[in-house]
């Protein structure tokens, strides 16, 4: 497009209007989250004749933690225009390793947590190398590594079992108060710092136009490897939270996080076409996904129909988000 025509289509609205249009995905995700919270409180109040209190808040936050981490991990890769189907496998592997290794003391649990996080990052490194150096599509690479990670998880923990020290559970998902919110805040702050770093900026650049960003000097290979490693690390953290919640391990419970993390990322306003959205949105998406399950539970919806309502909700949210987002962008 020649410069003179592009200057005509430059946004002429207010600065606020510009900010809204730029962050429309995040704003929509925040609105859906607000509606989900209100819906939950309303249904809970109608059914239980009181407002949800500390216990409900704590259990909701705790049950959302694994998905929050898995979704933020997924968002890094989706921002590069990729997709990670191996998230479930890494969650499985971390979960299985935690159950086998942690022993009885908090000290050994923390030490092994660090090891497990490194293993998760190594899984991500493998994905990143295959995508970056192997020139294979992310979806097929992670389809293959999913199978490998799932196999390793079953090797580590053939039968459900093992044990997680109670002190570790109290640290990660304390059942008495929603202390786990601290981890969400830390995750958000970590994202804010990363977003402003060189790899963070590059992440958006290659998600928007890989060829152009390469020409402009972005190290595409390094950025992708960083994205996949962070993704693997956070998926492993999800596995740790899952193990802490269940107080034991199971090498297959993590499988579902592959698809739910994609749902959370989409609900959080991260574009599957890359370069748009943020990890904050993914956190919101993960909380929405968890709240929907709670709403259906307290609304006495037949649990057999649960996945039907989740599917319908996902479609409505995505279509409504697309319509509203499109309308706002067109008006400017």
């Amino acid at each position: 497009m020649p410069p003179e025509t592009s200057s005509l289509t430059l946004p002429r609205g207010s600065r606020l209007g510009h900010t809204i249009a730029q962050n429309i995905g995040l704003i929509l995700a925040g609105s859906i989250l607000l509606l989900a919270i209100l819906g939950f409180v309303l249904i809970y109040a109608l059914e239980q004749h009181r407002l949800p209190g500390n216990f409900e808040l704590t259990s909701t936050v705790n049950s959302a933690m694994p998905l929050v981490f898995a979704a933020v991990g997924q968002s890094f890769v989706v921002l590069t225009k990729g997709i990670d189907l191996s998230v479930g496998g890494v969650v499985d592997l971390a979960n299985a390793m935690a159950a086998v290794t942690m022993g009885k003391t908090l000290g050994s649990a923390l030490l092994w947590s660090v090891v497990i996080l490194f293993v998760g990052a190594a899984c991500g490194l493998l994905n990143g190398l295959l995508v970056g150096l192997g020139r294979l599509q992310p979806i097929v690479v992670t389809l293959g590594t999913l199978s490998i990670f799932q196999g390793l998880a079953i090797r580590v923990l053939p039968q459900p079992g093992g044990a997680i020290p109670p002190s570790f559970t109290d640290l990660l998902v304390n059942p008495n108060a929603p202390y786990a919110l601290i981890f969400i805040v830390l995750l958000g702050l970590g994202w804010a710092a990363f977003r402003r770093s060189r790899p963070g900026v590059d992440l958006y650049a290659i998600g928007n136009d890989e060829a152009a960003s390469r020409t402009l000097g972005v190290n595409v290979l390094r950025t992708k490897i960083i994205a996949y490693m962070l993704d693997g690390l956070l998926a492993a953290a999800a596995g740790l939270f899952l193990a802490a919640s269940a107080t034991a391990g199971d090498a297959t419970t993590g499988d579902s996080y592959t698809l739910t993390s994609i749902v959370a990322v989409v609900l959080g306003g991260v574009s599957l076409f890359g370069g748009r959205g943020s990890a904050i949105g993914a956190i919101a998406g993960a909380l929405i996904t968890t709240l929907i399950v709670d709403i259906l539970f307290f609304g006495h919806v037949d649990p057999l129909f649960q996945s039907f309502y989740e599917g319908v909700f996902l479609l409505i949210a995505v279509v409504a988000g697309g319509v509203i987002g499109g309308a706002i962008r067109r008006r400017r």
Binding site: L304, F305, Q306, S307, F308, Y309, E310, G311, V312, L314, L315, V318
Partner: peptide, 8 residues
């Protein structure tokens, strides 16, 4: 989403 809808 369709997979979930049919499953449900």
């Amino acid at each position: 989403a369709m997979n979930g809808i049919i499953e449900g």
